[in-house]
Amino acid sequence: MAKALAGEADAVVLDLEDAVAPAAKAEARQHVLATLADHAAYVRINAPGSDAGEADLRALAASTGALAGVRVPKSEDPGELRRVADQLGVPVFPILESALGVENAFALATAHPLVGGISLGEADLAADLRVAGGPALDWPRSRVVVAARAAGLPSPVQSVWTAVRDLGGLRADTVAGRRAGFFGRSVIHPAQIPVVHEVCEPDEEELAWARSVAGHDQAAWIDHNGQFVDKAVLERARWLLSIADQYVKEGPQS
């Protein structure tokens, strides 16, 4: 955890769920609480309703540490998500990892004012759908992107790329994800961070286009490349420029 907090990630999620063996849950929980006493971080709790998940909620609710927010796995029930948000009083980020979770994407995204974003847990989702991943997950990915934006939430972050040494595959998949409406990515190894940052940061060609578009005040026009530009295109240009400002002022926001 100390290594992650000292690294280049934009946010650190301390995992109490899948990365922790059942017999080690209590010990891991104490390590997380001790870390939060000195460092702001997010926590992925165990599924609410489970014994471990309820113990996580009680411990975090009683903690005075710098809890930035919680990722809530196996999210399916908006009422359960509201309970978590009310109990902790911090931003909650439901992870959709089942067919029912995907079906309830918009209801989860709008379940509580403290919902800060939604995302997929693709390994569990693929298992629940009985698919091998890849193109079979295209529809759930589009579903979560649409639900997030319909709820006024940020574009969802992509799920973890598990082939840690395959940075080329990570790059290609992150590029495809960004084109599909995702922004940023959960990572599980420091070597993955620069790849995600590079893909998500607008390049000079994009920024030059965005600046040229944002500098006009017409309702609609044809740009220097012969492309029609209207309000929707202008909004995308302004979004790209806002991302660039965040990179300069605060570092990458992936």
Results as ranks from 00 to 15, higher is better:
Ile118Ala: 06
Ala99Thr: 01
Glu103His: 14
Arg130Pro: 05
Ala19Pro: 06
Leu81Tyr: 01
Glu97Met: 02
Ala41Glu: 07
Thr35Asn: 03
Asp124Phe: 04
Ala61Ile: 08
Ala107Leu: 15
Glu122Ala: 12
Ala109Glu: 10
Gln87Asn: 07
Leu108Asn: 12
His39Phe: 12
Val43Trp: 08
Leu125Phe: 01
Val70Glu: 12
Pro135Ala: 14
Gly79Thr: 09
Leu96His: 04
Lys25Pro: 10
Gly53Leu: 06
Ile118Tyr: 05
Ala62His: 11
His39Cys: 12
Arg143Lys: 11
Pro22Thr: 07
Arg29Cys: 13
Leu96Asp: 09
Ala68Val: 02
Ala136Pro: 01
Gly53Asp: 07
Glu54Asn: 14
Arg83Asp: 15
Asp38Thr: 14
Lys74Val: 06
Glu122Asp: 09
Ala61Glu: 14
Asp128Met: 01
Glu103Asn: 07
Ala109Trp: 01
Ala127Gly: 10
Ala21Met: 07
Glu54Leu: 12
Glu80Pro: 07
Val20Ser: 04
Leu57Lys: 12
Lys25Ala: 13
Leu36Trp: 11
Thr64Val: 04
Glu122Gln: 12
Ser50Thr: 15
Gly117Lys: 00
Gly79Tyr: 12
Arg58Leu: 15
Arg29Ile: 11
Val72Phe: 03
Phe106Asp: 09
Val12Phe: 01
Thr64Ser: 15
Pro73Lys: 00
Gly79Val: 10
Ala37Asn: 15
Pro73Gln: 02
Pro78Phe: 08
Ile95Tyr: 00
Leu137His: 03
Val72Trp: 01
Ala34Asp: 15
Pro22Leu: 07
Arg83Phe: 15
Leu88Ile: 06
Pro140Arg: 01
Val115Gly: 05
Leu60Asp: 12
Gly89Tyr: 04
Gly53Arg: 01
Asp56Thr: 06
Asn46Ile: 03
Pro78Met: 13
Gly117Trp: 00
Gly116Asp: 05
Ser119Trp: 13
Asp138Pro: 02
Ala24Gly: 10
Ala123Gly: 11
Ile118Gly: 06
Val144Thr: 05
Gly134Asn: 02
Val72Met: 05
Glu27Asn: 05
Pro78Asp: 13
His112Cys: 08
Ala55Asn: 05
Arg71Ile: 14
Ala24Ser: 13
Pro73Ala: 03
Pro94Ser: 09
Pro48Arg: 04
Glu76Pro: 11
Ile95Val: 09
Ala136Phe: 02
Ser142Cys: 11
Pro91Val: 12
Val144Ile: 08
Gly133Met: 03
Gly117Ile: 02
Ile118Met: 06
Pro78Val: 09
Ala85Glu: 12
Glu17Gln: 14
Leu60Arg: 10
Gln30Pro: 09
